[in-house]
Simulated assay, not measured.
Amino acid sequence: MKLRNLLGAVVLGAGLAVLPTTSASAIGGPNTLTVFAYYSDGTKQTLVGQRWSGCGGSGGQWGETTPYVNLFFPAC
């Protein structure tokens, strides 16, 4: 069990080491809306809430938040 956990940590660390780094400004941006979509369970079939911001607006939200989230960046 310990060997499997160690191997998993090594694989995860190696994967993170080869990912390119980006600045925070590259995520989202002035012409992008940031949308958090919250679902009722892990199947992500029933939308129960959203939160959004960007595109020069004040943002908003409705519904409830859950641990089952998808993140979207649609253009304005």
Rank of each mutant, 00 (worst) to 15 (best):
C55R: 02
T66S: 11
T32H: 14
A75H: 10
G28W: 01
P30F: 01
G56Q: 02
A26P: 00
A17V: 09
K44H: 11
G56L: 04
Y39A: 01
G42P: 14
T32D: 15
P74T: 00
T22K: 10
N31M: 11
L19Q: 08
L19K: 04
L3K: 14
L71S: 12
Y38K: 00
V11Q: 04
S25I: 15
T22C: 03
A75W: 08
L33H: 03
L12V: 06
G29Y: 03
Y68I: 03
S25P: 06
N70W: 00
L19D: 10
T46Y: 12
V10A: 13
V18E: 03
Y68G: 07
L3C: 12
A26Y: 00
V69H: 03
V35R: 00
T22G: 05
A9M: 12
A75E: 15
G13L: 05
L19F: 09
R4W: 15
G57R: 09
A75Q: 11
Q61A: 10
M1K: 13
L47P: 01
G29R: 02
V10G: 13
G13E: 03
L33C: 09
G57Q: 13
Q45C: 09
W62T: 07
L19G: 06
S58Y: 12
S58M: 12
W62Y: 11
G59A: 13
T34I: 13
A24Y: 10
V10L: 15
A75G: 13
T32Y: 10
V10M: 15
G28H: 01
A75R: 05
A26H: 00
G15D: 15
A17Q: 08
G54I: 04
R51A: 06
A37Y: 00
G29M: 01
N70P: 00
Q45W: 11
T21S: 04
T43W: 15
L47H: 05
L19Y: 09
S53Y: 07
V69N: 03
T43Y: 12
T21F: 02
T22F: 14
Y39D: 04
L71W: 08
W52E: 11
G54K: 04
T21I: 02
P30Q: 03
G29D: 05
L47Y: 04
Y39F: 07
G13K: 00
L19N: 06
G42Q: 11
D41H: 13
I27P: 02
G15A: 06
G29E: 05
A24V: 11
S53G: 15
V69T: 10
Y39N: 04
L6W: 11
W62H: 08
G8F: 07
L71Q: 07
T46W: 11
A75K: 10
A75F: 14
V48D: 00
L47Q: 03
V69G: 07
M1E: 05
V18K: 08
S58A: 15
K2R: 14
T43M: 12
L47M: 01
L3D: 10
P20Q: 01
W62C: 07
G28A: 02
W52D: 10
K44C: 12
L7R: 15
G57W: 07
G42H: 09
S58F: 11
T66H: 06
S58H: 08
S40I: 05
F72E: 00
L12N: 09
L33D: 02
G42W: 12
I27C: 06
C76L: 12
I27A: 07
Q50E: 11
P67W: 05
K2T: 09
Y68H: 10
